[in-house]
Design a protein around this nucleic acid. Structure first.
Length: 419
DNA sequence: TCTGGGGTCCTAGGGCGA
DNA sequence: TCTGTCGCCCTAGGACCC
């Protein structure tokens, strides 16, 4: 059996742990730049505030209903997430941390009664130790565990946050009562396709012929169908730590059009991404750079230029990566256009220990020592104290975070004081 | 005026060598 | 030597997730 353990309204719950007066009130968390809503408490959901709502469009709703607004505080959420995940890992052996607020667990060799008891224990202990409410869905496959989790959350007063799809009757009932678009793995585009052939519920989807699903929704859709039929096609992926690609992308506060400005941003993104790369002891062999116009602009041309290039040798040096990224940028840049967003993606990652030497990377030792020094200066005096000349020397970038809560768990100056 | 960021996986299609 | 076919690899783009 698989269990999906999911924190309820995670970011909102994190804010509530340290500000209990928020309980019962509508709470929303905004994305970077305070752009759009990325998390809502149940009270905010029932006001009809959708996920991804642009904050400026909902200003009136926020004011009218005294919605409590927070900028995202990922330092706080990350720390609380680590605590929740370590409690789970302490209680069950096979855990896959799927996202910041979710983990899959595989129960092998336990009796059903034992599993149920363990799940209820986990809910109780996580709430007691961290203050975060969690829900657990249990089922024979990961996709059905997701469905079960939805039921546990939706009917929390009846389920106490735990629901198990442990027989065929329950499976069929659950699939009849969930719309196809709400199933994990069926997104907006596939939902549209399914509605065209009159597939509305999860059960309608399962009743489709395999060939149709494979043809229209690829192998992923077919695997999902098998999962919903009760046949596991996805297993727990333990120890999935190293990333396969690393991205640093940002929207700009205003549109920019000069190559100099873009070069500064791309250099800064390269430095940030290279640091992430070194942190997981990897190197990259390919770099993708992209620049794009504002997709929400009513008038004018929309464009999105990107270019991927292979480095002559694998590296994690900020200097090599930014030099190469700027080279790619100059190839895709065109004058007289304005850009709202840019980014860099490092790909072809491999462990640093497997480094393939080449004729052209004779500076490798020098660069390695330099990066090591930069990283140690950063860790002693704060991030990004040492910068490349082509970066903006005054700031990294401006990010609007007007409603930021304190780092209650990671900064000694910001911990709660009980008087 | 103001609409996020960071990932994964799959497929189609072109280039290219056997 | 030329041509057709097959399969592999790479890339771009799309779809999904949180």
């Amino acid at each position: 059996m698989f269990a999906l353990i999911d924190c309820n309204n995670f970011y909102a719950s994190c804010e509530r742990v340290f500000q209990p007066h928020l309980n019962g009130k509508p709470v929303v968390i905004l994305s970077n730049n305070d752009g759009c809503v990325i998390a809502r408490s149940n009270e905010a959901k029932s006001l009809g505030i959708p996920m991804g709502a642009p904050a400026f469009k909902y200003k009136g709703v926020f004011q009218k209903n005294k919605v409590q607004i927070f900028s995202s505080n990922f330092t706080l959420y990350g720390d609380i997430s680590n605590r929740v995940m370590s409690i789970i890992s302490r209680h069950v052996p096979d855990v896959e941390i799927y996202s910041i607020d979710e983990a899959f667990v595989k129960f092998d060799g336990f009796s059903e009664d034992d599993i149920n008891e363990k799940c209820r224990d986990i809910i109780r202990i996580i709430f007691k130790w961290t203050g975060i409410p969690v829900s657990i869905g249990l089922a024979p496959t990961k996709s059905l565990a997701k469905v079960a989790n939805r039921i546990a959350k939706k009917y929390s007063t009846r389920t106490n946050g735990f629901y198990s799809i442990n027989n065929n009757e329950k499976r069929i009932k659950a699939l009849k009562n969930i719309s196809a678009g709400d199933i994990w793995g069926i997104g907006f585009q596939n939902e549209k396709k399914l509605l065209k052939v009159n597939v509305k519920s999860g059960m309608d989807f399962v009743n489709l012929p395999d060939q149709w699903v494979k043809k229209n929704m690829s192998i992923i859709g077919l695997k999902l169908k098998k999962e919903l039929e009760g046949n596991p096609t996805l297993d727990i992926e333990e120890g999935k730590i190293d990333k396969k690609s690393i991205a640093t992308t940002r929207s700009f506060e205003t549109e920019i059009s000069s190559l100099d400005d873009l070069t500064e941003r791309i250099t800064t993104f390269s430095v940030v991404a290279s640091k992430k790369l070194r942190r997981q002891n990897s190197e990259c062999s390919m770099i993708c750079v992209y620049i794009r116009s504002n997709p929400f602009k009513q008038k004018g041309e929309r464009y999105h230029y990107s270019l991927t290039g292979s480095l002559p040798f694998s590296t994690n040096s900020s200097i090599e990566i930014s030099k190469f990224a700027v080279k790619l940028l100059t190839k895709i840049y065109s004058k007289n256009k304005s850009y709202k967003k840019a980014g860099i993606i490092l790909m072809g990652l491999s462990p640093q220990s497997n480094h393939q030497f080449s004729l052209f990377d004779q500076n490798i030792d020098k660069q390695k020592k330099l990066m090591k020094s930069i990283d140690s200066i950063d860790s002693k005096y704060g991030l990004y104290k040492v910068r490349l000349a082509s970066q903006d020397q005054k700031r990294i970038w401006k990010m609007k975070r007007q409603k930021l809560s304190r780092n209650y768990t990671t900064e000694i100056d910001e911990v709660l004081i009980v008087k």
